[in-house]
Computed example of a mutant assay.
Amino acid sequence: MKTMGRCWAAFGLMLAAAACGSGDAGDQGAEGDTITRAEIPDNEFFPMELEARIDSLVAELNKTSLEPMQMVVLTKNLSDFFEPIAVGANRAIGELEAIGNVLGPTDQSPDDPTTTQDLQNQQIDQAVADEAKGIGVSPFGEENRASIDKAADAGIHVVTFDSDLVDSKRSLYVGSLGYSVGETAANTLLDMLPKEPSGTVLILGTTGKQWRDGFDRTHAAQNVFGKAGYTFTVVQAVFVDDNEATDIDQMKSAIQTANPPVVGMLGLFNISYRCVMAADAAGIDVPIVAVDFDPKTVEYMREGRIQATHTQRQYYEGYLVPYILYGINTIGLDATKQILAPLVDDKGRVNIGIDVVRSDKIDDYNDFLNTIGAIQ
């Protein structure tokens, strides 16, 4: 495969076994002709409904004659946000005794995104040529639609995750839904604000529809604060690391010119921690709520500067994809959707939900992540 200067790697089954959190959870797999899932101890962050749906799917699969299945899961990269996704996907592949790997670039360089998209298209095309029975993919954007549709036309079911191409021929999408994330995060902050609306809420978000998930998060947050009677202002997030100062300056300016004054701040992405930097630059001390579990966000939570964050259950995002692919191949798409029905919307999106983590629950949440081998 032509790599065009980027390094791609397989996050293989051996790594999945090594990454298991405790005990022999990673050593459990299919026994004979049944699927045995790794056991997870009870915890306040244990996703009851999500786990119940997976158990129901496994129970149905265990009624069939289980056969090895070839599949591939393609991520945007294999580090940071996507590392727990890779751990979950590999554990599921191991439990299913499927043939396949989790693949992705080993760097995150933003200098040539088109090249990365082209590489992912090559991976999809190769899976088709190898006669895989299922493909999981986190698409970079519209540039990946043709390859996904080509795979579907070849009779291969494609499940997207993390980012979706809802108008493509993919079978299902797995992830935390943007509107739900924004709504939940906004309500978390709303509970910390004065009961009598009297101030402005600053939202670090995006109003551009090119990134639908980001737009949905922002739109949902605007609706929550608007209905509650608060004034709100949106600062457009700038994601390039070198432009961190731009985000901070934009928010500082918005804080200084806000009328009425800013009484709370909400960051809707992994760069939420920049809200603290902006608040410091503007000389204000207000409740701040974040999204994602970035190390800098966690650091500010420990300092009491960020009151809560919301995580996207990346481990389960990765874990569900192979099970859904296997389910579609074994019992069919309709039967699989029926089992997952409480989680599936009318656009074929499987909502895995989010975890709300308060600043005094960081260690408890880390303990939970450790039990599933997905510490961040």
Rank of each mutant, 00 (worst) to 15 (best):
G5C: 05
F11I: 08
L13M: 15
A16L: 07
A18I: 00
A30S: 13
G32A: 03
P41G: 15
N43S: 15
E49T: 13
R53V: 13
L57Q: 08
E60D: 03
L61E: 01
E67F: 01
M69R: 13
M69D: 05
D80W: 01
F82G: 11
E83Q: 14
I85K: 10
V87P: 04
I93C: 05
E97I: 00
L103E: 11
P105W: 09
T116P: 00
T116R: 15
D118V: 14
D118Q: 14
Q120T: 12
N121E: 10
N121Y: 06
Q126C: 06
G136L: 11
F140Y: 13
D153T: 10
T160K: 00
F161I: 01
F161E: 05
S163C: 06
D167K: 12
L177G: 06
Y179E: 14
S180L: 01
V181R: 07
G182K: 12
T188A: 10
P194G: 15
K195I: 03
L202T: 08
T206V: 08
G208A: 03
Q222S: 00
F225C: 10
V235T: 03
A237R: 03
A237M: 02
F239I: 03
M251F: 04
K252H: 01
A254V: 05
Q256M: 07
T257N: 10
L266C: 03
A278Q: 12
G283W: 06
I284C: 09
I288G: 03
V291S: 05
K296A: 10
T297F: 00
G304F: 06
R305K: 15
I324Q: 00
N329E: 01
T330E: 09
I331Y: 05
I331N: 04
A335F: 01
T336C: 00
L343R: 01
D345T: 14
D346F: 07
R358W: 13
D360F: 13
I362K: 01
D364T: 09
F368Q: 15
N370H: 09
T371G: 08
I372D: 11
A374Y: 03
Q376K: 08
